[in-house]
Nucleic acid binder design. Structure first.
Length: 284
DNA sequence: CTCCAGGTTCCGG
DNA sequence: CCGGAACATGGA
């Protein structure tokens, strides 16, 4: 076990569920905990009951990254009271919507289109290893996520070698627009949700779904509601069963109202619940 | 082998 | 405006 750990309180938080909920893709199991990077720092983190034991000095980073200040109990009170939401909450209680570095989150979700979580992880780790800076942690080869400038200087073929396929062109194009200053990720912080969404969608490979993931997982816009294949399935089966001609537009309008001010939380819980229970309950 | 995966973009009607 | 197809790759 790593030396020099600090204990910080984390009531209501569930580290295992949060790391497995498809928000981030680069953490490695280590002993009873995990090793990974937050920004350019190596961090060990392990949960014991209502506490986290983390690398000494990493408190501020960990608290922010895992959003330990989110008032989960109050957030749950805002969820709609229906059987589907109740089942998802029961299954996912303790998951936080994380606050990841913006560029890292954006780049990772650009590579996520039409990919399973396991594949996203492979691509993410390959990009880090190929282009990122080595980060020292005994027993692991950690790397930072490469900057937009670093990826902007890469070739499309180098990115394809990281198994990105057609996504390589999108990630490269986005990295170049950000490195050149054409799009300013920091300026987006000060925009309202609608303007921020539109700005992100100017980037190649970024549509509404990816943009909403970035708004939710990196910009802390907890109302953002990404609709992917899983959520679309859940919405149609749970809330529009048997209805004809339910357009995606209809689903968007419904979910933006129905799930309330913490719609992004509701979405994340519905997503994780559906993904983990689909095969075992729907058919076999 | 076939199907599908935390989509986006472009094209024809 | 709309539905459909192309786009790469690898688990299940």
């Amino acid at each position: 076990m790593p030396p020099l750990l600090t204990e910080i309180p984390a009531p209501h938080f569930n580290l295992l569920l949060t790391l497995e909920s498809g928000q981030t893709f680069h953490w490695h199991p280590h002993g009873a905990g995990w090793v990974g990077t937050i920004g350019d720092r190596p961090v060990f983190i392990e949960q014991r009951k209502n506490s986290l034991w983390i690398s000494k000095g990493a408190d501020p980073l960990v608290k922010h990254y895992f959003a330990l200040d989110h008032p989960l109990e109050k957030i749950y009170e805002t969820f709609p009271k229906d059987p589907n939401m109740a089942a998802a909450l029961d299954f996912c209680s303790g998951i936080t919507v994380m606050q990841q570095p913006v560029w890292e989150c954006l780049a990772t979700f650009i590579t996520s289109s039409m990919k399973q979580v396991a594949h996203i992880r492979q691509m993410s780790l390959a990009i880090r290893k190929t282009f990122g800076e080595p980060i020292v942690y005994p027993g692991f080869e950690l790397h930072s996520y490469p900057t937009p400038e670093r990826l902007a200087a890469a070739t499309e073929q180098q990115l394809r070698d990281c198994k990105l396929g057609f996504r390589a062109k999108n990630l490269l194009g986005t990295a170049r627009m950000i490195a050149s200053g054409e799009i300013d990720l920091e300026a987006i912080r000060f925009m309202d949700d609608e303007a921020a969404l539109a700005e992100l969608c100017k980037l190649p490979g970024v549509g509404e779904k990816v943009a909403n993931c970035v708004l939710l997982f990196a910009y802390g816009r907890l109302r953002a509601f990404p609709i992917d294949v899983w959520i679309e399935r859940v919405l149609r089966e749970m809330y529009f069963k048997g209805k004809r001609k339910v357009t995606v537009e209809k689903l968007k309008r419904f979910s933006s109202e129905y799930f309330g001010p913490y719609g992004g939380y509701a979405q994340q819980y519905l997503f994780h619940h559906a993904r983990k229970t689909y095969r075992s309950t729907s058919n076999s």
